[in-house]
Write a protein that binds this DNA or RNA. Structure first.
Lengths: 345, 345
DNA sequence: GACCCAAGTGTGACCGGTCACAATCCTCGC
DNA sequence: GCGAGGATTGTGACCGGTCACACTTGGGTC
């Protein structure tokens, strides 16, 4: 290891070459594991590398080779549980593959802003992962030039979202379907739905899974209550629904919304699950500890992030191609917030 | 704009130079806003840039100039609210300054693992921001070579953490002090404390703020209950405290712990705030919607992230130096979970 | 009209790697 | 003992920018 202080510039391969008495190309071969280097030579080079504390300059490597071992994740709102978990999964997989992870936040769904952010990500070089659960993300995915290696993280795709690009997805449709069936099976006449903002103009996958379950059960379908992402939106929606005593079961687009709904029901004096059942979506870490604890559908976001990276990795290195469109299978988690409807319903 | 399809390699400054009939150096001057370029020339170059869709190659720029306009954030656990918010703030400020943001997650506090992660971050080039609220982060900050531009995000520093490096901080001590005083002022004899893992071997700032408030009020001091970061840890700690009927007020190291404590108290049949008051830390988005809603101390994490970036930016560009050690001032938010102790206490 | 200086522009080297190809070294077969 | 051919190693150009410096101009001054 380099002990002699005041090393201004870090050592380059030519420094190492000089120290080892070989050419820079030989050093390059050693650090790239090229087979035809005499063991004794390799030994000497490795010693020099160690002594000088050499580390390959990733910038120069990227420039010369054209490959950059980097991913940029384009996402809205990293503070939301689902997004943060996906990011966590991506980072984990990227770290294992020694890729660098960059992050770009889509703050608005405005076309110009999205385009600018995509450009920034493209400038960074390397691959791209776009989390397209919301309008901004969907637009971003659409705005990625065809020449760039990209993987989309999307909800149940009705049709391939970004042309024929690779993507990974959560089976939101199935998840909503399961949760709705669960509530219906408890005896509720129907299930009301508080929706997160749709990622597209079309109906979201969650909405359509909910709708299908109702249809199959012959249950009347009410209009989904459009809401935002956070608890405040759920609270507002919950206040509306709390006023209607015919409402006995509410499915929420995510656990944050469910939290707001629970609070609103509490404020309105309606007990959960005695009078109203509530189910969420995502199984955020706090959901199990709410009072009442929240029935929800767990989605493996971290695993989804890992898949997304694996897929991109396959594209970038043309090595063993992984499954084309990995899906995260949802799992219903029944807790205290759901139960049979009150007598008389 | 470039309309003629099949452009394989993106345009370089030499391509632009040829198109504009000037030398590549002139193109370089134009994109860098160098003053001595004849307006008519600049015009022609800009037209060529636009026509070819030229964008400066950031990799080449970084290699040649030695400056990279990039920050890497080293952090544990991006799914926790505080960390995610700081990251959000950093990204926001970085985007405004058109810096790229990289992220490295410290998964273990193991020295070797931390060192490896620091190395990865160093390899990325550019500046470093280390979130040092936990042992892994603190070690990482310590492991950053002195030659690297770095800013630490730390809790109330007893002594400068990473030598004399710049840092930003939240006044955790003051925050804990305020929360504890609030509870005492309601009439509680003393306040128990459920602690997050300390960032160092020494007592954490939160702990010492709590302790000071007790001491000033002459209240008896109990041993802090050591816990983890998440609601599960809070739940376990809460179960312990719930058994002791002399406990009437609990301060929790963060809102997630508080959630677990609330749940445990509920399970033990102790009402909040009737029998026990609970206060948290951070004001996470869900805290206002819990039942009961949570009294807590709000910390401006996003602003803290912005300050951290601003500070680093100043270091990197030696431009207008900002305040040396920006601090985020805490704000007490009183909600339903705290009230006077039950009669007889 | 010669001289000086600043504005405007171009040339060559370099950042730290990689790639393509040439040159040298060995070892083996005959 | 000699040539073939693979194993090793070295050289020069290049990735797409920047930097340092040299070279034209054009105006003003005396």
């Amino acid at each position: 290891m380099n002990v002699t202080g005041h090393t201004r510039r870090p050592a380059s391969i030519r420094d190492v070459a000089t120290a080892a008495g070989v050419s820079y190309q030989t050093v390059s071969r050693v650090i790239n594991g090229h087979p035809s280097v005499r063991p004794s030579t390799r030994e000497r080079v490795l010693a020099a590398i160690d002594e000088l504390g050499f580390r390959r300059n990733v910038t120069a490597h990227a420039l010369a080779s054209g490959r950059s071992r980097a991913v940029t994740v384009l996402t809205a709102n990293t503070t939301h549980y689902g997004y943060a978990s996906i990011l966590q999964g991506i980072e984990e997989a990227a770290r294992a593959a020694s890729y660098a992870v960059g992050i770009g936040v889509l703050e608005s769904a405005d076309d110009a802003a999205v385009a600018a952010e995509v450009q920034r990500a493209a400038d960074a070089g390397g691959g791209l992962i776009v989390i397209a659960y919301d309008p901004a993300g969907v637009r971003a995915l659409g705005a990625v030039p065809a020449t760039l290696p990209v993987v989309g993280v999307v909800e149940t795709p009705a049709s391939p979202p970004g042309g024929d690009r690779p993507w990974v997805w959560t089976d939101d449709r199935e998840a909503a379907y399961q949760a709705t069936r669960h509530l219906l099976s408890l005896g509720h006449e129907t299930v009301h739905y508080v929706a997160i903002p749709s990622s597209t103009r079309r109906t979201s996958a969650r909405t359509s899974g909910w709708r299908q379950a109702l249809k199959e059960a012959g249950a009347p379908e009410s209009r989904p209550v459009q809401s935002s992402w956070g608890p405040a939106g759920g609270h507002a929606a919950g206040l509306k629904l709390a006023g209607d005593t015919s409402v006995t079961a509410i499915l929420c687009g995510n656990d944050d919304l469910a939290l707001g709904v629970l609070r609103a029901l509490h404020e309105a004096g309606r007990s959960v699950p005695g009078e109203v059942s509530v189910a969420g979506f995502d199984d955020a870490p706090h959901s199990a500890f709410l009072t009442p604890s929240l029935t929800t559908v767990r989605l493996d976001f971290t695993g989804l992030g890992r898949s997304a990276f694996a897929l991109l990795h396959g594209v970038l290195e043309e090595s063993a191609q992984v499954a084309p469109h990995p899906v995260s299978v949802p799992e219903l988690v029944v807790r205290e917030s759901s139960g049979p409807p009150p007598a008389g319903h």
